[in-house]
Design a protein around this nucleic acid. Structure first.
Length: 524
RNA sequence: UCCCCGAUAGCUCAAUGGUAGAGCACCCGGCUGUUAACCGGGUUGUUGUAGGUUCGAGUCCUACUCGGGGAGCCA
């Protein structure tokens, strides 16, 4: 009904200009505070609505925010009121109304609607205001990111990406785009996606690093920023098969210099997010004080020290107290579930009350199953850390433990060279080690950065490649960098989604990217 | 590749081996300040697939498929 008379679609912006007298100022929800007292038009989608006979509450989102529009039924607008009251979720609409400051409203601003025009009636929008399962939500990802929480996360992501770019740009780095189709030369070849390239086998890039090393010899400080592909069959809350990574590479630079850059970058990301997204972070339930604590200097420990910590008493104490807490929580949840089920089944309980209890029971059951998984895992983690052997890489649970034992990010340096890539520079004082580092985010978020000083000595590098069984002929171009003015250099890679997860305080990495690609999930 | 958990209405979930249910969504009606609004009425099923046990299977057994979590590996 009520096709918009004054702002017809399609294309209300150019083809059907309204006569000057009828033009009402269009406003964005994000700017409504500046329009208090004025009557404006907003254009958006119906997020949710309620009505109570003579009043209709329309919660409208317009891409910049949401606002509640209150429409009062009068003799004159009965038809429009009936239409507005029945609008379905996610119908697109325009609302003319007066902007009002109102303490009852969520954002402090509300609109008294004067006219509501339907643009398109949505039918059977699948994502209701009630809870849904993850599988369903990701099958509807194209719609799900309209929802508030997802909307906020993707905004924070955009800001983090913007800050990454401006950090490197303002610090004199040159953007060098590295290829996505790559020949076999890379790190571990089992984790590469194969692509048929006109009959030849090439791979989707796993890192731009080798190319960047060449570029830093031309531009001194460079970075690349693009998607990265890993065919790892990992099903965990910190893995994607397609993710975004920023990699700086610096000529005339040693391990400490690289670590300092990583430290500065992470600090400016945290500050920028705190500055621009305090509201979103709070709404996401992020503990802001944890982000405010992301300040220089971060902790720096060596791999050997990390190994000692893992085998030591502090780790055991932490896991023991985890076990005590998880066990207590399990008992508590079981008790609450039993009580609520009993209460809901009792005589004379109001229907709505029983339903509310049932919903709470579902939540408790979900938490219970997580706690039970934790209880299962703690002994495993305990064993993994207690039996940690010098020489192996730090596992996911090991990293989590190290990170949880610190209140700021931790650089772990000087890993055994046997578990690290061939291009990392051998440590002069101890040839068993390489000049590398990982940055572990606190609160258990784990690795967000991996980096190293690169091996600049031709003979050492060639020897290392032979050990790894790499074909020298594939890397001649790379070895040229060590033939023509080789210098100490290094860099790192920061995983964007892991950073977003950490800064937003999210359970799972899959919410940090618009269309997550996971093992077994590539639709839509 | 290995280990654990799960799959019932469009969605979220119930159902001591014995007639498949509730809420939401959707439709109708009511309510002048709602915040996952509420109240009354209505519609909604090949219980993931294929076998097996049983008088009888959503429920027990086997295999497979898909999903979730974790290990390994990693940003």
């Amino acid at each position: 009904m009520d096709r918009p008379r004054r702002a017809p679609y399609p294309d209300p912006f150019t083809t059907h200009r309204k006569p000057e007298a009828e033009i009402m100022e269009r406003a964005l929800v994000a700017d409504l505070r500046k329009h208090v007292g004025q009557t404006v038009t907003i254009q958006g989608w119906l997020y949710n609505s309620r009505s109570s006979g003579k009043l209709a509450f329309l919660i409208v989102r317009d891409g910049t925010g949401t606002v509640q529009c209150v429409l009062e039924k009068t003799d004159a607008n009965a038809e429009m009121f009936a239409m507005a009251e029945k609008l379905s979720q996610e119908s697109s609409l325009e609302v003319d109304g007066e902007v009002r400051a109102d303490e009852r409203a969520e954002g402090g601003v509300e609109m008294t609607a004067k006219a509501v025009r339907l643009v398109h009636a949505s039918e059977g929008y699948p994502i209701t205001p009630k809870p849904h399962g993850v599988d369903f939500l990701f099958r509807n990802r194209h719609l799900w990111f309209r929802s508030k929480r997802q909307w906020m996360i993707l905004r924070v992501r955009a800001t983090i990406i913007d800050e990454i770019r401006s950090f490197f740009n303002r610090n004199g780095y040159i953007l060098i785009d590295t290829p996505i189709f790559a020949p076999s030369a890379g790190e571990g070849s089992q984790t590469l996606f194969k692509v048929d390239y006109f009959g030849e086998e090439v791979y989707l890039a796993q890192t731009g690093q080798l190319y960047l090393e060449s570029a830093c010899m031309a531009h001194r400080k460079v970075y690349c920023f693009g998607p990265t592909f890993r065919a790892e069959k990992s099903k965990t809350r910190r893995h994607l098969t397609e993710f975004w990574m920023v990699e700086p590479e610096i000529a005339y630079c040693q391990l400490d210099d690289v670590i300092n850059v990583a430290e500065d970058l992470v600090c400016s990301l945290a500050q920028r997010v705190l500055r621009d997204h305090r509201t979103e972070l709070e709404a996401l339930g992020r503990d802001i004080s944890k982000l405010e604590a992301i300040k220089k200097p971060f902790y720096r420990i060596t791999y050997s020290e990390a190994a000692e910590i893992l085998r030591g008493p502090r780790t055991r104490e932490l896991l023991d107290s985890d076990m005590v807490r998880a066990t207590a929580r399990k008992a508590e949840l079981e008790k609450m579930i039993a009580e609520k089920e009993k209460e809901a089944a009792g005589q004379g309980v109001k229907k709505w009350k029983a339903e509310k209890l049932a919903a709470e029971v579902i939540d408790h059951r979900e938490e219970l199953s997580e706690v039970e998984t934790e209880i299962d895992n703690i002994p495993k983690h305990k064993q993994l850390s207690a039996n940690f052997d010098w020489g192996g890489d730090l596992g996911g649970s090991d990293e989590t433990l190290i990170a949880r034992l610190h209140d700021r990010p931790v650089f772990v340096t000087h890993y055994p060279r046997d578990c690290k890539a061939f291009y990392m520079r051998r440590h002069d004082a101890d040839p068993r080690l390489v000049q590398n580092f990982d940055l572990l985010a606190p609160e258990g978020y784990g690795e967000v950065i991996g980096g190293s000083q690169r091996e600049e000595r031709l003979d050492v590098l060639v020897h290392r490649m032979q050990e790894e069984g790499l074909k020298q002929e594939d890397y001649e171009w790379y070895l040229d960098l060590r033939r023509y003015g080789s210098v100490p250099h290094g860099g790192f890679g920061l995983g964007v989604e892991r950073t977003v997860r950490w800064l937003c305080g999210l359970q799972h990495i899959r919410e940090t990217i618009p269309y997550p690609r996971l093992m077994g999930r590539f639709y839509p």
